[in-house]
């Protein structure tokens, strides 16, 4: 059985002023196997983050269901951990304090918190910076802390919401390779939301392409590039082929968006 099973998922929002109901995600079905790295890609407004937040249990479902290891998702749980976009670190806590935060919230009792946190900090390569505060770190380092905080609670599923979205192109590439290195050691099931095509291909076993109005899955693409991967595969023919396919999908979305703008 798949580890994550999403069936006929629909999420509606009520717009605060007009009271109009607006559907962020509709008729989404997806299964993710244990240990699989799945990226979710799509242009802005396609509901990809909403889908991820629903799996995290931070958004309530209007229709359908999400199951993790056969258990219905009704809220956040210790089987999942989220890596958010930047700035979700507590600015008054040190790197170690931040990595301990998730463990404290889960009332972790698997031994010494400090030791566990340091282990994770070393895993993401920040051993020397454990006493630094977030404002003393670069964007890339902050996201390493974010990843360490999520891994510390030893989740079954790692959920990542455009974690490298605020980083410059070069740092983003380095962080992608770094994430794969960590993931290969931690062996977690991963759901990773991005709008960056190269990132989506580079990381994935399986790419979920989403479209807009309302957010739905357009296609699920298997990625058969060999692992472990490094930057060299960015230039392979298979990679180019996948990139072309994804570009076509996103271009389609962009042109329909322009049409809407012209009509409006």
């Amino acid at each position: 059985m798949a580890q994550i099973e999403i069936r006929d998922l629909g999420i509606d929002y009520r717009k605060p002023k007009s009271n109009e109901v607006f559907s962020a995600v509709d008729s989404v079905a997806l299964s993710v196997e244990k240990g699989e790295f799945v990226t979710i890609v799509g242009s802005s407004g396609c509901g990809k983050s909403t889908l991820l937040m629903a799996v995290a249990g931070l958004v309530s479902l209007t229709r359908g269901s999400i199951e993790i290891d056969g258990k219905q998702v009704t809220g956040p749980g210790p089987d999942r951990a989220v890596v958010f976009q930047e700035a979700s670190l507590l600015p008054w806590r040190s790197v170690r304090g931040n990595v301990k935060f998730g463990l404290e919230m889960q009332r972790w009792n698997g031994g010494d918190l400090n030791e566990r946190a340091m282990q994770m900090i070393r895993l993401v390569g920040l051993g020397r910076f454990s006493d630094y505060h977030p404002h003393q770190l670069s964007g890339g380092m902050r996201q390493r802390v974010n990843i360490a905080r999520a891994l510390a609670v030893d989740p079954e599923v790692l959920l990542m919401d455009e974690p490298f979205g605020a980083l410059d192109a070069q740092t983003r590439e380095i962080m992608g390779a770094e994430l794969l290195r960590i993931w290969e050691r931690a062996k977690k099931t991963a759901l990773f939301v991005t709008h960056d095509i190269d990132e989506a291909i580079f990381l994935a076993d399986k790419i979920v392409v989403m479209g807009r109005n309302p957010g739905h899955i357009k296609e699920v693409i298997k990625v058969d590039l060999p692992r472990p991967r490094n930057e060299a595969i960015l230039d392979s023919d298979a990679f180019h082929e996948l990139r072309k396919r994804l570009r076509a999908h996103l271009a389609e979305d962009m042109s329909s968006m322009q049409l809407v703008q012209e009509v409006a």
Binding site: P76, L90, M105, Q106
Partner: peptide, 27 residues
Amino acid sequence: RDLARAARSFGARPLDIFLRVALPGSV
């Protein structure tokens, strides 16, 4: 709100968010 949401994702209860996020952030 981002910090509160991150805390919730780790299973923080409202009192946890008050004591560990809202209060230190307000000092």
